[in-house]
């Protein structure tokens, strides 16, 4: 009896969805999002619960408030040595020469390039991006300590932190980036005004 009622309910829901879709097509081909969940169960029961262990293993993202930063630390001096071996081939000896993305160019420098010093709004992004995607030919191969040191080197080269500063989970989110206050959210809203 209960099963029969559920079946009827589902059939009705399918009919409603089909009517909605065909109705929208009649009115000039518009598309109605499938937000009508009438007759849907609270849960389909597909998929499985993620274990804390697998979440921890995959969750590599770092937030601007520092959440996600691992233990460890680094300094510019150590970072400079790693940079020379693993980064300089693409980004240049001092981070200004290229051939790929110029990384160094303090605020007020005459460079037109968007650098960490004149454009990046958050220091935590340097750690996050370098750890997940660099070096280009061996992504994800750097240790957390190496990434902390490279971050310290890049911040110091852009004259944002002192070259003797230690970068770690506590100090990195506190670094105020020169371009931080320039960022504004998108204010385009559609409509006649060009923005």
């Amino acid at each position: 009896m209960g099963r029969l009622r559920r079946y009827t309910f589902l059939t009705a829901a399918v009919v409603v969805i089909l009517l909605l879709i065909s109705g929208s097509q009649r009115h000039g081909g518009g598309w109605a999002p499938a937000t009508d969940t009438t007759g849907w169960p609270a849960s389909f029961g597909f998929g499985r619960t993620a274990t804390l262990q697998e979440i921890t293993a995959m969750d590599i993202s770092i937030r601007p408030d520092g959440r996600g930063l691992p233990p460890g630390s680094g300094t510019a001096a150590t970072g400079q040595a790693i940079y020379a071996i693993k980064c300089a081939a693409c980004h240049g000896k001092t981070g200004t020469e290229g051939p790929y993305a110029r990384l160094v160019g303090p605020m007020g420098d005459t460079t037109k390039a968007k650098t960490i010093g004149n454009y990046w709004p958050y220091a935590t992004t340097i750690f996050d991006y370098t750890r997940r995607a660099m070096p280009y030919n061996a992504p994800g191969s750097l240790s957390d300590a190496e990434v902390y040191s490279l971050t310290a080197f890049l911040l110091a080269a852009n004259k944002i932190i002192d070259s003797s500063a230690v970068v770690d989970a506590q100090s990195l989110p506190r670094v105020k980036m020169p371009a931080h206050d320039l960022y504004v959210p998108d204010d385009r809203r559609g409509g006649p005004e060009v923005r």
Partner: peptide, 24 residues
């Protein structure tokens, strides 16, 4: 809150007037 990843800060943003940078 947003994570402020590389793609949404140093890339895919652009300067607008008054020295501001439009994001998201």
């Amino acid at each position: 809150q947003p994570f402020m990843t590389r793609e949404e800060t140093s890339k895919y943003t652009y300067p607008i007037k008054d020295g501001k940078i439009r994001q998201f």
